[in-house]
Write a protein that binds this DNA or RNA. Structure first.
Lengths: 195, 195
DNA sequence: TATTTGAGTGAACGTTCGTTCATTGATATA
DNA sequence: TATATCAATGAACGAACGTTCACTCAAATA
């Protein structure tokens, strides 16, 4: 029982997680640079000083949020690894990733992270790594379905379309969202040589 | 000669334009909210107080920059109105819009504006209007080339792909940029029924 | 049980922020 | 020429910023 977590350590971990979640809410509502450290502390219901016991500075908090995106990506890539027909897998991937990117909270955070990536190498690194993991998971399927295209370029264009469309309709009505999703699936899968 | 511009009025107009340009440079280098009004005044080589003679506040300056994008879009849509074959026109549009969106300065500003749009209705309004003008210009051509698809949805997906790909490769090497552009043209035009 | 550790607090620090304002001087108007 | 207008200045304002600090107290360790 070497790795038994003590009461102290457990609450510290939970507190840390709680701070990250509170920060994410603030960032979604106000943006990175319009959110003050006091805002985050207030939302997490802890003192200002205590926040600095858990995070070195505000930048570290932003980086942690940006890295969090990676976790949600893993579940999306899972649909690509099964034994189902490739076309079916791609279709499910489009649905899953479109659903994720068209969620307002995700769209807002993604826009915030993208803008931040443009100036901060630390954030950009995480952003690129996340995207590459999607590309890598997508390539084998794309290779089968679009034998005439260069697989990586093709996979990236597919991602561009899904993410672009998702973010664009994040605030649209459910009806338009659904129509866009269906058109998106058609647009991508229509070019597949054969099932 | 009713509308003759006096020396006073002319220099005022020029000064105003100069401030906007200086602000744009600051925003590209640092982002909207990391740029202080003092930064802008310093870059424009005018006094802090004088800036407030030309702009009501910092927000007005941000809104003006966001609205500026519209001007550069007009030239892009021009290639869609000629007498050339529709497929050729679409191809030129892709080239022009991709070239624009893959320019780093544009990509940075676009990311900044998108993030700002998520929270500011004023900025969002301009963003949506700009996009709609592109869609409107694109629809007639799309209607001809993709008779089976719903024209507006189709036009939006095409824009998503171009802009997504453009912004993504904004900081990539020229070689990859060109490869992406060519793959982009293939990807979109391959589905055209006939020339 | 005595000692050490670190989570938790909020006041305080120095800096920077957006904005205002009294004042100056050049240009337009009469 | 006398007067009104307005671009231009930079000091000053109060508020908010990120961060530090001395301190308290509960939990872990010996």
């Amino acid at each position: 029982m070497q790795d038994k977590i003590g009461k102290r350590e457990a609450t510290t971990l939970a507190r840390r997680k709680h701070i990250v979640e509170s920060a994410a809410i603030c960032f979604i509502e106000q943006g990175f640079h319009q959110t003050s450290v006091r805002d985050i502390a207030k939302r997490a219901k802890i003192s200002l000083g205590n926040l600095y016991n858990h995070f070195e500075n505000k930048t570290a908090l932003i980086a942690e949020i940006a890295a969090l995106e990676a976790d949600s990506l893993i579940s999306v890539t899972k649909v690509l690894t099964g034994n189902a027909p490739h076309k079916k897998k791609l279709e499910q991937f489009i649905k899953a990733h479109f659903a994720a990117t068209s969620t307002p909270a995700n769209a807002i955070l993604a826009a915030e992270i993208l803008a931040e990536s443009m100036r901060s190498p630390l954030i950009a690194e995480g952003y690129i790594r996340n995207r590459q993991s999607l590309i890598t998971a997508l390539i084998p399927v794309v290779e089968m379905l679009f034998p005439d295209a260069e697989p990586e370029l093709q996979a990236e264009l597919i991602l561009d379309t899904i993410e672009g469309a998702g973010n664009r309709v994040a605030f649209a009505k459910a009806k338009k969202k659904k129509a866009t999703r269906d058109a998106l699936i058609d647009w991508i899968t229509a070019k597949i040589s054969d099932a």
